[in-house]
């Protein structure tokens, strides 16, 4: 790949690139596009069409950077959001897909975007969404955790803490004095 360093996001450039973007978005018919502002696009796409969309965006529209993959637990399905940044047009496209809750499996886009490796591993660890074809699905952060995927809405951290640990009550002198008079900690 040849990178033209001096290439600035001129108006023409921007216009031509958005045309490419438009073309791509029209080639895939299952898209829903929303422009949020000059630099933010939201694209809703079916899960099957996403890899093709990413390839096209990267290959033809200059979306070289996968900024992040975010996972949202909607309790009946997962939403995966692929944030793509173009250094040329200075535009961020967020591609949203929905995948089923169980079994939560999706395909890896590591072959298109290397950074996906980290995010996919992270999402698997935190949400239990498995990415087929991802190079590394081993645990990274929660090495010693064997409970449910903790970022799921169904995982109640406070309950876990209450079940797991004991609370230690303070008994300072001032509190004892107040308690002797009939006072107490009320909330």
């Amino acid at each position: 790949m040849v990178w033209d360093q001096d290439k600035e996001a001129t108006k023409d450039n921007y216009a031509s690139q958005t045309i490419v973007l438009d073309q791509i978005l029209h080639e895939l018919d299952t898209l829903n596009i929303e422009q949020k502002n000059n630099q933010r696009f939201r694209v809703d796409v079916s899960a099957e069409a996403l890899p093709a969309l990413l390839s096209l965006l990267k290959g033809r529209a200059g979306y070289t950077q996968l900024s992040a993959i975010s996972c949202v637990d909607w309790e009946d399905e997962f939403e995966l959001v692929y944030h793509l940044w173009s250094y040329e047009t200075k535009v961020l496209v967020s591609a949203h897909i929905r995948i089923q809750y169980t079994p939560a499996v999706y395909v890896s886009v590591y072959d298109i975007y290397t950074p996906a490796g980290f995010f996919e591993r992270d999402i698997y660890e935190m949400y239990g969404v498995y990415f087929e074809g991802s190079p590394m699905m081993e645990k990274f952060i929660l090495t010693e955790w064997h409970g449910p995927a903790p970022m799921l809405k169904s995982f109640d951290t406070l309950k876990y803490v209450n079940d797991m640990f004991n609370w230690q009550e303070y008994q300072p002198d001032w509190l004892k004095e107040i308690q002797a008079k009939g006072g107490k900690v009320v909330s």
């Binding site: 790949m1 990178w3 070289t64 950077q65 250094y87 290397t114």
Partner: peptide, 28 residues
């Protein structure tokens, strides 16, 4: 290399050290 940096998702000073003048403060 600049190519590696871009494809591995490198940003910030690390990316600029490869000769790529990208900065969120400017670009976004």
């Amino acid at each position: 290399t600049p190519k590696q940096a871009l494809s591995w998702g490198v940003t910030g000073p690390n990316l600029r050290a490869c000769g790529l003048a990208f900065d969120v403060r400017r670009d976004d």
